[in-house]
Amino acid sequence: MRNMRYLEHVATLILDKEACIGCSLCTVVCPHQVFQIRDGKAVIVDLDSCMECGACVNNCPVYALKVTPGVG
């Protein structure tokens, strides 16, 4: 998958660092390993590989994630 990447700077994923409790569920559900847990908090490490599937948004227990996909 590393050799297949789509357009850059378009993903609308936003992480509210303050709200994050570091439960790591986003790292589990993300099919593109967009997140990593660093110092007890989630960090977006690869925003451009985000495909806006919404798995992390749906499962985040504290609603710290947001995505507003286009109509593609």
């Binding site: 990447r5 789509y6 357009l7 993903a11 590989s49 495909m51 996909p69």
Partner: peptide, 12 residues
């Protein structure tokens, strides 16, 4: 495909 974001497709 499993890697294209809707925002990207819209732009394309």
């Amino acid at each position: 495909t499993p890697f294209t974001s809707p925002s990207g497709v819209e732009k394309e």
